[in-house]
């Protein structure tokens, strides 16, 4: 009976906040060390993650279609989408910075959406997978999420500095949508419980 290795199977629960291990499986008890609620697994992990993932997926569409900023030069507006800004950087000869922005604002968010989707499917349909490899994927997703805020911070710097009457940068509607995508995917990754991947494995 190798499945007995799980702490839950042996009657232990670990506190999410302080990491204290308690010998109880009562889902209504409090952590003896820090008084927070004990849960064997994150409560409603799959439902919450799915909800957050769907909302970020639908916000990802306006984030890419609408302009993220408009450069006003002498009265003529020049709107940029996320992809447009990257193409301009690469055309201007700034390839490394262009690639950096490409990774932070396109590769990371879209692969996060796909990755969290796969993790959810895997946990829901109890696929027999290499759980260790999938846990590493989860860790990468949880780690890189915050770096997508790069575009949002950059807009706040540009909007402030480039503001001199005839040349102006104005933030566009995609900025709000993109910020929401980043925050919602970070919350989705936080709500997903990687232990669900291990619970389904029969041959550990």
């Amino acid at each position: 009976m190798k499945a007995k290795k799980n702490a839950l199977a042996q009657g232990f629960m670990r506190c999410h906040d302080c990491g204290y291990l308690t010998k109880t499986i009562d889902q209504h008890s409090l952590c003896p060390r820090c008084d927070s609620h004990l849960h064997a697994r994150r409560p409603r992990s799959l439902q919450r993650t799915t909800a957050l993932l769907f909302s970020s997926f639908f916000l990802y569409i306006p984030a890419n279609i609408f302009p993220i900023m408009t450069v006003n030069q002498f009265g003529a507006g020049d709107p940029h989408t996320i992809i447009g800004g990257i193409i301009e950087l690469i055309d201007g000869g700034m390839v490394p910075i262009g690639l950096l922005v490409l990774v932070a604002s396109i590769v990371v968010p879209s692969s996060k959406l796909v990755g969290i989707g796969l993790l959810l499917l895997c946990a829901h349909f109890r696929w027999q997978i290499n759980a260790r490899r999938w846990t590493v994927m989860y860790r990468v997703i949880a780690f890189v999420g915050r770096w997508s805020m790069l575009d949002i911070f950059m807009i706040s710097i540009l909007v402030n500095l480039v503001n001199s009457g005839s040349v102006q940068i104005i933030a566009g509607p995609a900025a709000t949508a993109f910020a929401a995508v980043v925050i919602l995917t970070m919350l989705a990754a936080e709500n997903f419980d990687p232990r669900l991947l291990w619970d389904n494995q029969q041959n550990l």
Partner: peptide, 16 residues
């Protein structure tokens, strides 16, 4: 079996 001698992995729930 006292609980402080044990620990659980927060990501895979292995009792250690």
């Amino acid at each position: 079996m006292h609980s402080t001698h044990y620990d659980a992995c927060p990501e895979c729930d292995l009792l250690l």
